[in-house]
Design a binder for these strands. Structure first.
Lengths: 357, 357
DNA sequence: CTTTCTACGTAAAACGATTTACGTTTAAAT
DNA sequence: ATTTAAACGTAAATCGTTTTACGTAGAAAG
């Protein structure tokens, strides 16, 4: 059953032309007269010929592969991103090489190194951390690359991410409008710039309303670590009236813990999640959540990378895409009984007080 | 900043040896004296040398890449599978090339063809359908491949899947034990062998208990199509006392629809889901579900493929892994009021009746 | 009619590794 | 000490493409 694959020479012989001509027919690199081209194409079809990518890569230097490095293949946010990029890349007949870093800097560097050995045309990367040591590798290789989602603080290259500050702002404002003052923010790790940005968004609302400082817990990068950390929270403080999760694993962790505490959502406690998945709409109560435009992020990342591959050398583009608040039913007005107003006297109140003396 | 990547010759020159020796140091293909080997390794490190995979692929013929073809990159079941395979493959320094077929046969063939152009050492594939036209391509290429999850009816090669019959059996039995007799089974498409197997498992329980025939709807492959189809169901028949979903999108669709109908789970209707994800534990009520051992499936698929790549030619292996029922709280005893006993007289009853005449 | 382009085909070099064929050194055997 | 074989290096051939340098034919220009 096994047939040795046809090479460009076999096709050339069958079509009665030289190998170079066959190459030109397929690569479109130089024009070939229609008649000949047709003969070549027929010969190729008859032999089931497909150009060997490794060989063409080797000689041509520039291959039609792009590398994608993400922290976790088991996190649907990242795989959605990969799906979006793959769709866009495939449309221009680029193949994708995927690697995951397990949220670890040195793992990331190692994976990237083997990726680079394929001489890809470009790389899309969601860094494992703000340290982003892979940056050096990429720059040394002189490869175009786009950073997505986790854009380090002082990063100057091409980047696509959510408008995290605004996302935090929207989320916090929503909960405040519902009367919540005792909110616990569930983050993955403050070592990530995007998380810090979301927090500043929240803090700006706290400041606006002159409220107590941010109450925050770090949950790590897995469902399990999140649940464990939250379990511990119960022993440290009384239950807040609302949880604001800043990642999808955080959302899951909060929900699972509330489950164990037998707390009803939203009657006993409101929950605002991050990232928007099908299951959030399907469950009861449907989850209020901040939706990141993940498909759009993937498309934009590809578009930028594509241009760079073409040789475009405009100044770096830093794209921030707006998130939207999906209001559903897991957030409700804070029940009056449970609202313990821990608000400090507002500036205005204090001023009034001062005047009256 | 851009540095032209070092080639094997650069390393050879720096270490004062020939290119062949450098190759041997890295490939371990032939022994090299420790002293020399060390010198070569140092030179390589100094130059940041990494063997060009395309070049080594070209000459060596056998590359260290494996292709993975799955129906959807946005379905967490499949991406979990990819994650498991990637972990196993990476441990033996194989890279993975991922392609998705969008559940379409011809798309699958096209994607596979471009994958094959990389001359991978092997392929793991979840076919888009039972037709599995890609099989011919793979066999013609003489490439080892393993079929996972959707194994066509009469398939004879290496395969790894769940024990779908038993999964259906367990699920149905669980619902029957809780007293449910009016169950709607939500499948993706009966054109898939694995779905048919799950159905026969369910049917065997129906037969055992002499119950009414299977009530089934096909929901398609996306959350949206599932929700739409279920919406329509409401106009066609009265509400069942339980839903048994056979895929993860089906589970989501059922849940979302129940949501819209304002039906409480499990008080009004029980729900048994398929596939087991974090969110199922986190939501309220936690979902009873059939768990497929997806990581194990990935590991086993890799193990078989690895052996075939090594040249093993044992007869094909058809592995079936057991699923487990995760009992949680979305299934409950059928409320007596709503139990409409549509059971036909059992064979025993009928026999008794006949005798008494 | 000659000259000058332009268009397009061919043969051969190149890409960066592995592998083969062969040579030299070193160790083991007589 | 001589022979034999094993061990290990080197140079050159090779994988299947793309690219370069060159050649030829026909068209356009003078």
């Amino acid at each position: 059953m096994k047939v040795p694959p046809a090479s460009i020479k076999d096709v050339a012989k069958r079509a009665g032309v030289s190998a170079g001509t066959v190459s030109n027919v397929f690569s479109g690199n130089r024009p070939v007269k229609p008649g000949l081209a047709k003969r070549v194409r027929e010969a190729a079809a008859a032999l089931g010929y497909e150009p060997d990518r490794a060989a063409s890569q080797l000689r041509g230097g520039k291959g039609r592969v792009v590398g994608i490095v993400i922290p976790e293949l088991s996190n649907p946010f990242f795989t959605s991103l990969v799906a979006a990029i793959e769709t866009a890349a495939r449309a221009e007949s680029f193949d994708i090489l995927v690697a995951s870093s397990s949220d670890d800097d040195s793992e990331e560097a190692a994976r990237l190194r083997t990726l680079l050995a394929w001489k890809p045309a470009g790389v899309v990367i969601v860094p494992a951390s703000d340290e982003f040591p892979s940056r050096g590798l990429l720059e040394k290789a002189g490869l175009p690359f786009v950073v997505v989602d986790r854009v380090p603080q002082d990063f100057t290259g091409d980047a696509v991410s959510s408008d995290n500050f605004d996302a935090g702002l929207q989320a916090a404002r929503h909960l405040f409008e519902l009367g919540h003052r005792d909110i616990v923010v569930a983050a993955s790790s403050m070592r990530l710039q995007n998380i810090r940005e979301r927090c500043s968004g929240i803090e700006s609302v706290l400041r606006e309303t002159d409220s107590a400082p941010l109450s925050l817990i770090e949950l790590g990068f897995s469902f399990e670590s999140a649940a464990a950390r939250l379990e511990q929270l119960a022993t440290e403080r009384r239950r807040p009236t609302a949880f604001l999760a800043l990642t999808n694993f955080g959302t899951l962790g909060v929900l699972a813990t509330l489950q164990q505490w037998n707390a009803r959502v939203p009657d006993d406690v409101s929950v605002l999640g991050f990232d928007d998945y099908s299951w959030m709409r399907a469950v009861s109560p449907p989850l209020t959540a901040i939706r990141q435009p993940v498909e759009e992020m993937g498309r934009r990342a590809w578009r930028i990378l594509r241009r760079r591959i073409e040789g475009d050398s405009e100044p770096p583009e830093g794209i921030r895409l707006a998130c939207t608040l999906e209001r559903r039913r897991s957030t409700a007005t804070c029940p009056p009984g449970t609202t313990i107003d821990i608000k400090r006297p507002s500036r205005r109140d204090r001023d009034d007080l001062a005047k009256s003396n």
